[in-house]
Amino acid sequence: MTSHTTPLEYKSHQSQMNILGFWVFLGAEIVLFATLFASYFVLEHNTAGGPGGGADIFVLKDVLIETFLLLTSSFTSGLAIHAMRNHDKKGLLLWMIATLLLGAGFLFMEINEFLHFIHEGATIQTSGFTAGLFTLLGTHGAHVTFGIIWISLLLVQLVRRGITEKTSSKLFIASLYWHFLDVVWIFIFTFVYLKGMVM
């Protein structure tokens, strides 16, 4: 990689170290979610007289909408970084705002889903199954919430300062975080929702 082809967010040594450090953090996040998946898999058959597993409370249509919202938001945040590398501030801003709106749509669907679970008699205290479920989904949803706040604040900086070595590095790191949340959701979709509805 010669210097004139290096993207702006990798220009300074500090930015490179920040990006590397964030990858290490994502490694720790993988382990965090692994522990939550492990507890869910161990507890999912302990329904304690409450709803008897995923098939009783999951709604495929809602889950699919959530999945497509999050998949699309991952795509738009990729487009935002593509625009950033073309020094297209407006494109970067618009695609990031699209990402935030899709993320907010996902959260709206997920909160409605939680209300549906509670309505069906599945609260976090009902059984081992619901405790594991709410903890796993809730931790992911909390990450999405944090990501929305984080990226919103970065966009304020972007509007004020433009695409600089610092703002580009910060937005690139936030996009890595957002893609990562999509990766986690893929596994939740497959091993919580689809598995819960078929087994």
């Binding site: 490179q16 990006i19 590397l20 990858w23 490694g27 382990v31 979610f33």
Partner: peptide
Amino acid sequence: GKEGIINVINIVNSMILALIII
């Protein structure tokens, strides 16, 4: 990036840890 190979090793390591934990 310059640390691309480190990133891959780090992520593969984390996935192995995740599989062992689960």
